[in-house]
């Protein structure tokens, strides 16, 4: 991780996140469905951590808890030492669906956070900056239905970045994109992370994506999710997909997920 810290000069901007003894369950009628089981995890400021696990294991719940959209049944998550109870614009969630508001133009969608906090008048220029950052400056006045899937996801990324988040929570943000767009967006996300210096927590079930993008890959069990093991990828950025050293990491991840028979 030394190499990545060096390539990430703005590292002080990121939040330090600590997940401590976190358990959570959903109520299903009178039954309780446990989804997270004693999860402990520490993210240093500016870390890029991927959470890898089978679908439906509770990874997304962890992100919702970190965003403050729900409160955990047991344990806690802290940001810079303070317990997370409520949403805060310094911790922004990017969903698998772009969830842009169809009645707003791209510009108005990206400005949502500024508008909600009453900063629109003074900081309008940040909308343009964010759109430039994701390469959508030509589509300010477009409505979401006029965008392709990749462009819509870029717009939702700009909507998150305009708030200068210190923690970016990525809930399979590339899961619904076609594979070519997905590859280019992976590199772009890494570039944005290096430029901005936020802490990033990525949930994915794509082994290759996790290993290509993150410094640490936390592998989780099927529901209720526990941490099985952690894989450290200290290869420097920019990384190359063909790098031989990635193969070993991939094999280890697949083994932890019980899929190494296909290797």
């Amino acid at each position: 991780m030394v190499g990545s810290t060096a390539s990430n000069p703005a590292v002080a901007d990121g939040l330090a996140v600590s997940v401590q003894g976190l358990s959570h369950s959903f109520a299903l009628g009178d039954q309780h469905l446990p989804v997270l089981d004693h999860v402990d995890l520490d993210l240093r400021p500016g870390n890029f951590v991927a959470i890898l696990g089978p679908s439906g294991c509770g990874k997304s719940t962890l992100l919702r808890l970190a965003a403050g959209l729900e409160r955990p049944a047991a344990g806690r998550i802290t940001a810079d030492g303070r317990t997370i109870n409520d949403p805060d614009p310094e911790r922004v969630l990017v969903f698998q669906d772009p969830t842009l508001y169809p009645w707003r133009t791209v510009r108005a969608n990206v400005g949502l956070g500024l508008e909600a906090r009453g900063l629109l008048r003074t900081q309008r220029h940040r909308i343009d900056e964010a759109l430039q950052l994701v390469g959508l400056e030509g589509f300010k006045e477009a409505y979401p239905h006029q965008l392709s899937g990749g462009m819509a996801q870029r717009a939702s990324l700009a909507r998150a970045l305009v708030n200068d988040p210190r923690l970016l929570l990525l809930d399979e943000p590339l899961g619904k994109l076609d594979s070519l767009t997905r590859l280019s967006m992976q590199s772009e996300l890494v570039r944005l992370w290096q430029e901005k210096g936020f802490t990033a927590l990525l949930v994915t079930h794509d082994v290759e994506e996790a290993i290509f993008m993150a410094e640490r890959i936390v592998v989780m069990s099927p529901r209720p999710a526990r941490i099985l093991d952690e894989i450290v990828n200290d290869l420097p950025y920019p990384r190359h997909r063909g790098d031989e050293r990635m193969h070993g990491l991939r094999r280890r991840a697949l083994a932890l997920l019980g899929l190494d028979a296909s290797w």
Partner: peptide, 11 residues
């Protein structure tokens, strides 16, 4: 999800 988005952005 529309509400979740706005809430995380400080609405």
């Amino acid at each position: 999800a529309y509400y979740d988005i706005a809430r995380t952005l400080g609405a």
